[in-house]
C-alpha cells in the first residue's frame, strides 16, 4: 500500500525550540532581516544545550524592539519601562538569589536612558546576564540617532550627519567592572551561543554585545543596505580578537572587532549582601 505524504501547514510545523517559546506570542513583531530573532534563537539554543530549568529563569527587558523579547520566552518574564530593566532585575536577584536573571535591551535602552544602571550594576558585580542588541539606531521609533550611532552617520534626527561620538559598549562594561564581557554579531551564531552559555554560568556581572542588523530602518536610512547586504557586511568587517583590551575593540565602517574580552573573578554582590545578612543575624541573635 502506498503511504500518503502528509503536507503540514506552517501552523502545524514544529520548531526544535518550540517548547522554549511562549504560546500565543508568535509571530513576533520584528522586521524581516532583524538580528533580534537571531539573538533569541541563540539564547534558546544556549538554554537547551545547558538543559536549563526554565522554572528557575527570569527574563527582563526594557522598551524598544528588543524590549519585546521577554514576552517570547517561556519563562517568568517582565517587560519594564525604558531603560529600567536592570534595577528591576537587581531587585529580583537580591530577593531570590536562586533564580537566574537575564536582561535584554537595545542600545537606546541600555546605553542611553538606562546607561547609569548598566555601569552601576557592572560596578557592583551582581550576577546578572545582560545581552545588548546594538543596531546603531532607535529602530522602533523610526531610525533616530543614538549613543552608538557612528560620527557623521545620517539618521532621521541627524539629517546633516551625527555630531556625537559613539560609546564602545564593551569598553564601558569592562571599565565599570563587568567580570564577563564579549561582543559578537548576528552572523556569529555559534560563538554567540557559546558566550551566552558562559555568561549564564558566570558568578558575576556578564555582558554580551551583539551587533544586530536593522535593514528596515538603519539599512534604509543610513547604511543603504538590504538584509543580505547587512549580513555580508557583518561577516566581512568582523575580526575575531579574543582577550584583546576592550579599549582596542573598535567598531568602524570597515572593522568590527569581536570576541571574548573579559572573563575574570571578583566577589559577587548578591553573595556579599546575603553573607553580611547571615553574619549580622548570627551575632544579633546571640547578644
Amino acid at each position: 500500500m502506498k503511504e500518503s505524504i502528509k503536507h503540514l501547514t506552517n501552523h502545524e510545523r514544529k520548531h526544535p525550540l518550540d517548547s522554549y517559546l511562549r504560546k500565543g506570542m508568535i509571530p513576533h513583531i520584528w522586521c524581516p532581516g532583524c538580528g533580534n530573532g537571531v539573538i533569541l534563537n541563540c539564547f534558546l539554543q544556549a538554554l537547551k544545550e545547558l538543559h536549563f530549568n526554565l522554572d528557575n529563569l527570569v527574563v527582563v527587558s526594557g522598551i524598544g524592539c528588543m524590549g519585546r523579547i521577554s514576552g517570547y520566552i517561556n519563562a517568568d518574564a517582565f517587560h519594564t519601562t525604558h531603560g529600567r530593566a536592570i534595577p528591576f532585575a537587581l531587585g529580583v536577584k537580591l530577593a531570590k538569589p536562586e533564580l537566574k536573571v537575564v536582561v535584554f535591551g537595545g542600545d537606546g535602552d541600555l546605553l542611553a536612558i538606562g546607561a547609569n544602571h548598566l555601569i552601576q550594576a557592572a560596578r557592583r558585580n551582581i550576577e546578572l546576564t545582560v545581552i545588548l542588541s546594538n543596531n546603531f539606531n532607535y529602530g522602533m521609533t523610526g531610525g533616530q540617532c543614538g549613543p552608538t550611532t557612528p560620527l557623521n552617520a545620517v539618521t532621521t534626527t541627524s539629517p546633516y550627519g551625527n555630531v556625537e561620538h559613539p560609546f564602545n559598549a564593551v569598553y564601558l562594561a569592562a571599565g565599570s567592572g563587568a567580570t564577563y564581557v564579549a561582543r559578537w554579531t548576528a552572523y556569529h551564531v555559534r560563538n554567540l551561543v557559546d558566550s551566552i552559555k558562559k555568561a549564564l554560568l558566570k558568578k558575576g556581572f556578564s555582558f554580551i554585545e551583539v551587533i544586530s542588523p536593522c535593514p528596515e530602518i538603519y539599512g534604509r536610512h543610513t547604511k543603504h543596505m538590504n538584509a543580505v547586504e547587512m549580513m555580508k557586511w557583518l561577516k566581512q568587517a568582523s575580526i575575531i580578537q579574543n582577550k584583546i583590551d576592550p579599549i582596542k575593540a573598535e567598531i568602524t565602517q570597515n572593522i568590527i572587532v569581536v570576541g571574548e574580552f573579559v572573563d575574570k573573578e571578583k566577589p559577587e554582590y548578591t553573595d556579599l549582601i546575603w553573607g553580611k545578612i547571615g553574619k549580622v543575624e548570627r551575632t544579633y541573635h546571640k547578644e
Binding site: 517582565f78 519594564t80 534595577p87 528591576f88 529580583v92 530577593a95 544602571h117
Partner: peptide, 14 residues
C-alpha cells in the same frame, strides 16, 4: 528610579 524599580522587582520575587 532604580530604588523603586528594584522594589517592584523584589515584590514580583515574592
Amino acid at each position: 528610579i532604580s530604588s523603586l524599580m528594584s522594589v517592584i522587582g523584589a515584590s514580583w520575587a515574592g
